[in-house]
Computed example of a mutant assay.
Amino acid sequence: MSLRNQLSDLLPTLLPSNPADAIKGTELIRLVRLQLTGNYSDASLRYHFSIMSCDPASPIAKVEKGQGYYRRTAPVPALSGAQELVSLSQGRLDDLGGDSKAIDHALERVKKFRAIVRRFNELNSRFPFEFRNVFTAGSPLGNLWKYPEMILVDWQTGEENDEAMVLESRMLSLKQRLGLPPFRLTGARLRIQASLHGFREDFFQALSASTWTQGAELIYAAPILDEALADGLRALNAAFGVGVSSFGLDVEALDDLPRAANILNAHPKETEALLERLQFERIAAPRHRQHIEWGAMEALRRESEETASLIDWLCECIDEGKARPFPGA
Rank of each mutant, 00 (worst) to 15 (best):
A164H: 13
I224Y: 04
M165Y: 02
E303K: 12
V134W: 03
A285H: 10
S53T: 07
T26S: 15
A260W: 05
G91E: 02
D231A: 15
N124P: 00
T136W: 09
S246C: 10
P258L: 03
S44E: 13
F131L: 07
F203K: 00
L254G: 05
L185D: 09
M150I: 14
L178N: 02
R324M: 12
N39C: 06
T271M: 14
R282L: 14
A78F: 03
P59I: 04
L264H: 02
A273T: 12
D21W: 06
T73Q: 13
R109C: 06
E305W: 05
A284Y: 11
D9M: 09
A102P: 02
S17A: 15
L172T: 08
Q193N: 04
F113R: 08
N124R: 15
A209I: 01
Q6M: 01
P128R: 06
T136G: 09
I60R: 02
G198Y: 11
P327Y: 02
P56Q: 02
L254F: 07
D255A: 15
C54I: 00
S8G: 03
F49Y: 11
P128D: 05
S139I: 02
F49S: 05
L36D: 09
S44H: 04
L85P: 05
L172D: 06
N133V: 05
Q156L: 15
C315A: 15
L34D: 04
R301F: 06
R259V: 07
A216Q: 10
P223N: 05
R189G: 15
F280L: 10
R177F: 08
R92D: 12
S17L: 09
S195Q: 06
L180I: 12
E108A: 15
D9N: 06
L96V: 07
L3H: 01
N262T: 06
S245H: 02
A43E: 14
N265I: 00
A230V: 10
D202M: 11
L174F: 07
S8D: 11
T271E: 15
V32P: 00
R30T: 11
P268W: 03
F135V: 08
I60Q: 04
G295P: 00
L174P: 00
M52T: 01
S44Y: 01
G198H: 15
S44K: 14
R177N: 04
Q279A: 13
E316P: 00
K111C: 11
R118E: 14
F127E: 05
E27A: 15
G138A: 08
A329G: 02
L310G: 04
R282Q: 15
R4T: 06
L7T: 09
D255N: 14
K101T: 13
H105R: 13
D9I: 07
F247A: 03
Y69Q: 06
V242Q: 04
D55F: 03
S87V: 03
V110K: 12
G248W: 01
L34A: 12
G321A: 07
T157D: 07
